[in-house]
Simulated scan of single mutants.
Amino acid sequence: MSEFWFSLLPTLLPYLRTHFVTLDLPSSLASSPEAPIYRNRSMQVRRLKVFPIESIVRGYITGSAWSEYTNHGTVHGIGVPKNLQESERLEEPLWTPSTKAEQGQKDENISPAKAAEIVGKDYADKIRRLSLDIYNAARDYAAERGIIIADTKFEFALDESTEPPDVVLVDEVLTPDSSRFWRADRYKVGKSQDSLDKQYLRDWLTREKLKGKEGVEMPEEVVRRTGDGYKEAFERLVGESWENC
């Protein structure tokens, strides 16, 4: 799915650059016994300097944003309208960055001002503008295919080979791992939504009091239900059968 978006987004936003090169394996790996492990599970990309923040765009109030809002009336410290309901669409999408924690640590929600302190105001402004542009383009594309993109996470890097250095979209993009995908025909304000992402797994972990614990084994039913949502999101957005890919 990342490969799909990395190919589509620059056609919608011609000024957008990405790190994606190809899904093909390098020749040194393609002929090795390990090739099946990596085929269709990895990308060749350009090596760039990744910014140490995660760039989250929220079009609807849900998840950790809803938790903060119910407790403090803010989202990442940003004032938002009063009397919002859970899963309600925001008037304008919000850029709500977080720290990019080391492996095994938890990202921390931060304000746009704090993000500017970390990466510099000019780069923070560019990341914010690109993030909102990408979200808006993807949101409109997905809406035509019956999917609401409630929120999503992007990562960006600096290409120091250009003059001036350019901000480039990297990592994965608009997958069920990094986004909340809701079925538009089942959307209803005031409650959590029927999703096509990892929320089913999150909810199971919370319900079973396993969230954050090591060595958790998922029951087959949780694996199947989560996987079914991923496949449906892929087929709706990409327009191809999962089995044929």
Rank of each mutant, 00 (worst) to 15 (best):
M1Y: 14
E3W: 06
W5D: 00
W5E: 00
L8V: 02
T11F: 06
Y15C: 07
R17Q: 11
R17W: 03
H19A: 08
F20Y: 15
S27Y: 03
A30Y: 10
S31E: 09
R39T: 15
R41Q: 13
S42W: 09
M43S: 15
L48M: 10
V50L: 12
I53D: 06
I53K: 02
G63V: 07
A65C: 11
W66F: 12
T70R: 14
H76E: 04
G79C: 09
E86A: 14
E91M: 10
E91T: 13
P93E: 07
P93N: 10
L94D: 00
L94M: 06
P97T: 10
P97G: 12
P97E: 13
T99E: 05
E102Y: 07
I110G: 04
P112C: 13
I118V: 14
K121A: 15
K121G: 08
I134P: 00
A138N: 00
A142V: 01
A143I: 02
R145G: 00
G146N: 14
I148N: 09
I149S: 07
T152Y: 04
K153C: 03
D159N: 11
E160L: 04
P164E: 00
P165L: 13
D171L: 05
R180W: 12
F181D: 13
R186G: 09
K188F: 07
G190M: 08
S192E: 14
L196G: 03
D197H: 12
K198I: 14
Y200R: 05
L201N: 04
D203Y: 04
E208T: 15
K209S: 15
K211C: 05
G212F: 06
K213P: 03
G215A: 03
G215Q: 02
P219N: 04
P219M: 06
E221F: 10
E221P: 11
T226I: 08
G229K: 05
A233L: 02
F234I: 04
R236K: 11
S241W: 03
N244E: 09
N244R: 09
